[in-house]
Design a protein around this nucleic acid. Sequence first.
RNA 1: CGGCCCGUAGCUCAGCUGGCAGAGCACGUGACUCUUAAUCAUGGGGUCGAGGGUUCGAUUCCCUCCGGGCCGACCA
Length: 576
Amino acid sequence: MSNILLSEQEQIRRQSLEELRKAGIDPYPAAEYKTNVFARQILDDFNPEKNNFQDVCLAGRIMSRRIMGNASFAELMDSSGRIQIYLRRDDICPGEDKAMYNIIFKHHLDIGDIIGVQGFVFKTQMGETTVHVKEFTILSKCIRPLPIVKEKDGILFDAVTDPEMRYRQRYVDLIVNPHVRDVFRKRTQIIQSMRELFNSRGYLEVETPILQPIPGGAAARPFKTHHNTLDTPLYLRIANELYLKRLIVGGFEGVYEFAKDFRNEGMDRNHNPEFTVMEIYIAYKDYNWMMNFTEEIIKKAALDLHGKTEIVYGEHTINLNPPFKRISMLDAIKENTGIDISGMSEDEMRKVCDRLNVPHSSEMGKGKLIDSIFGEKCEHHYIQPTFIIDYPTETSPLTKIHRSKAGLTERFELMINGKEIANAYSELNDPMDQMERFQDQLRLSEKGDDEAMFIDLDFVRALEYGMPPTSGMGMGIDRLTMLLTNQPSIQDVLFFPQMKPESQKSKAESQKEEFMDLGVPEEWVEPLKKLGYTTIEKLKEVEKAGKLANDLNGFNKKNKLGLNGLSPEAVEKWLK
RNA sequence: CGGCCCGUAGCUCAGCUGGCAGAGCACGUGACUCUUAAUCAUGGGGUCGAGGGUUCGAUUCCCUCCGGGCCGACCA
């Protein structure tokens, strides 16, 4: 009875559903439907001279229909693509009873329904490879109208473009925008490509805690939650770095994890509160080795995806063929600003910041100032893949001190298209140095730096048992996927990007129970609301009960609700 | 958090200085046995995001709120 709040098209589809049931057809059958082919295989391999595909069975969603009296064409979309199907009344209904075609197919099937078809493949006069259907089976009825997207030669007409619909109802986006499915297939291919490489080297894929008592391994604000039984706070991980290094201490030589991390910070085209990072740690290696390995990972992913290392992103063509440019952070600053800041004091650096219009504040040390200059003046210039190496110690508390350059660490970030794709170190394995660095972080935190790292004493304890020299690297899978699939926003490479919750009802609308308290029968509440009486206040403003009763009875008749008529006296009682 | 923009039929979008809410596709009915953005005829479908204000009259002007986008700030 809630049907009256549905759109006309939804009501019609629900009626079709009932008609199917009345005709003895289950619109949601339970049985397995055995198919023997996908649309793509037919389109690729059908050859009229070979006369192949003469007994095919496939299943998919009806995406368009062209009915011409006693014959019809439609398009069926399965996971592999779209193929045209052809139905003739006298094939579907060989006997006297033509209902299966005339009634069921023509009137009770809609765009969006999922059906199975069995028949043979042929080419139409227009040369279109088509399945001539001898029998069809309804597999699932679609009772909500699908946005209609027409297609001609790969061009979409009236495509669904509203970002809100695309992200909130990704299932609709995936149905009507075929290229979207491709992006997500490629995302999985990228991960597979990396996993293959790591497994071929004998590295172990592992899982580490998402709920952590101390959110370590990065500088970021965490999501906080609470465990009832332990009565203790827990945090969603901002990184898995410290746990993976514990495993290296434990004796594994190479470990990696594709990890969901969570950061309670802003959202924009490059940031989502939850995101995926691949982190890998390999014993007895240093960051120089890791640069070579990173080149190999990126190159392989590009080749596995595109068969070449040259990719297009927006207006740029980017070449992912190694070797990538390597430049130290200080040289990068010199390259982009013409200023050599090496050996400068903190005060001198502040003057440089002022000259370059780089914002800075009093609690920033030399490291942060360098970081800031690089971020403002250099980072976005590195379109072609570039390793920025040797970062200041202050901003790299988990990284080994540089073997030869004072004040710096053995760290690199890989920049592509002006954005960080990967971050790696020669891992700090000196437990006493690590403890001091944590204490430095604590001092920063006390000064008000809310992104300073927490101290993880158990991690220091692990290092005290001895961690082999190790190099580790983290790579942003979402950003890498954006890059390799030419997508401008992180929302386009996440199936379900974070959105504000949809508000269900406007607060102004009165609840059903409030109307029923006034004596309105339950089944009349929705007709009342549909007529504009959305609140009990509006109902009480009504002066002529007779007219309202008349309106309601008229609505009842017009929409064929089949409700018992209302008397003016009954309506009069609601208004008191 | 700040600036700009958007929200009208299932979808894509028009709607001028305020005056009866529109188109294409989709949907209903009818015709049509090789169509392909099928075609032809015909019909129905709207809380103009929500609430308030100004006005004789608001989809249109003003305010508040909700949702979304872009840019910036902050943040990896």
